[in-house]
Simulated assay, not measured.
Amino acid sequence: MTRAPGVVDVARAAGVSHVTVSRVLNGHTSVRPETRARVEAAMAELGYRRGAVSSGRAPGMIDVARAAGVSHVTVSRVLNDHPSVRPETRARVEAAIAALGYRRNTVASALKSGRSRTIGVVLAGSELYELPKILLGIETAARDAGWWVSIASWNGGGAGDLTETVQRLADQSVEGVTVIADRPVAVEALAGLASGVPLSVIMSGDVANPRLSFVEVNQVQGALDAVQHLVDLGHTDLVHLSGPMDTYDARARVDGWRKGLVAAGLGGRVLEGDFTAASGFGLARRLLAEPTLPTGVFAGNDQMAMGVLAAFAEAGVVVPRDVSLVGFDDIAGAAFLVPALTTVRQDHVALGAGAIEVLLRLLDGGTASHRMIPADLVVRKSTAPPGRP
């Protein structure tokens, strides 16, 4: 034999099908011991080595074709899921691919077709909230649409630096890029970002760059829903404990808070914190020092709400009998606070998926857009009508 023995050769020598040989190679439990022994004996006799080819190089399409007893054109059709291939031929080729350990050369395929089916993802900043969930949404949506994902990071600098990072991905044949951006770090760079590939951005708020599509959670709507929930319960004396007003997130939530109050014909106060549990605790202590407590408190995020719960518990104030409390984010564990926290949930998986959807629309020739992902009010045990546990 002038070439390295293949799956078909082993199958013939052992008197079994090529599918059975593939099952033996992959440790499949459905193969009977005597059949397995016969296949292993044939491999030993022929000198068969999985993944081996005559030159010692990585197996290629020609090697798969020889092992499967078909033409390289047929192998190509199987790899491209062409409907003209008969099921039994497809199975033989797939068995040869598995046996040889063949891996498709995506770079060569991209050069030949002009398409890589790959999307780049840039992590812009080191303080990216709920990054694993966002990436899950990105990768799931991309895979479902038949695309792969390649990731790079950028930790600050000017528009030129961010453009260079995007360009490096483009040089690797990505067809479009999604940027997951920490606004304080990336906003100025995004405003001046220019690229030869379509771009979508996940970030709170947008920037004046008509080339970019943006996706964000509708925090204004989420805050308005939180206020409306308290109003519907009968609360009229309300306070919002905000995050730092130099951040977009805090301003967006205050905007929703104010819109909710206007819609209800109510007034209300804003006390500024910094999105930490310690600031929530401190602001709650300020409220406790006043002659009367508000009946409803909307905290800027769940961390601040945790601090409020701790301060109220320390002072003997019972939530929700004395004060109803709403948070924002629905962080892990919010349902297990005492009481379970009513809060506004941000769907970060949907955020990632939305970025892929708008990017694919750009790749199909669409125009840049701004998509808002709805926030969801999650009602638990920390809110009730005034004076009722």
Rank of each mutant, 00 (worst) to 15 (best):
H240D: 01
M1E: 06
I134Y: 06
L341K: 12
G196S: 08
D63I: 05
A368N: 07
A353F: 03
V262K: 14
R117D: 13
G354D: 00
L128D: 12
S71W: 09
W147H: 11
L25C: 11
R3S: 13
P320T: 13
G282F: 07
G354N: 05
V270E: 14
G6K: 01
L25R: 11
G47S: 08
Y129I: 14
I331W: 06
A67E: 14
G387A: 08
Q219V: 08
Q228D: 15
H240W: 07
K259N: 12
F281R: 15
G365S: 07
E45M: 07
L193K: 12
V197G: 10
R321S: 00
L224S: 09
W154H: 11
V326L: 10
R361T: 08
V297N: 03
R286W: 01
A368Y: 00
G15M: 14
V318S: 13
I119W: 07
S213Q: 10
G273K: 12
L351T: 02
A289L: 00
T295A: 09
F336R: 13
R117L: 11
S369C: 09
T35E: 05
L293I: 09
A191R: 12
A250C: 06
L363T: 02
G47D: 03
T2Q: 05
D232H: 11
W148C: 07
G176I: 00
S30R: 15
E88D: 14
P386W: 09
E130W: 11
G273Y: 11
I119A: 10
E94V: 05
A41P: 00
L136V: 10
R86G: 10
I97Q: 03
V187L: 04
R77E: 00
V75H: 00
H72T: 15
R38D: 01
A334I: 02
G365M: 06
R36Y: 10
N80S: 15
G6V: 00
T118I: 06
P33Q: 07
D171N: 10
T89K: 13
A42Y: 04
V338T: 15
V201M: 11
E139D: 13
S30P: 08
H240Q: 13
Y248T: 15
V166Y: 04
V318M: 08
P244C: 01
E290A: 15
G60E: 09
G192I: 04
I180Y: 01
H348K: 15
T367Q: 15
S204F: 10
L136Q: 14
W148T: 14
T2L: 08
R143T: 13
K112G: 12
L377P: 11
G267M: 00
G160I: 02
G56T: 09
A208R: 14
I151K: 13
L293N: 05
L360Q: 06
R50Q: 15
V358I: 04
T178H: 01
N80W: 10
F281A: 07
D225W: 02
M306E: 10
P198I: 13
S324I: 08
V326K: 04
I180G: 03
L271Y: 13
A142I: 00
Q228G: 03
K133D: 05
A58Q: 14
Q221P: 02
F281S: 00
V262Q: 12
L287D: 02
S195G: 05
G196E: 04
A311M: 06
L169S: 03
E175P: 04
S30D: 14
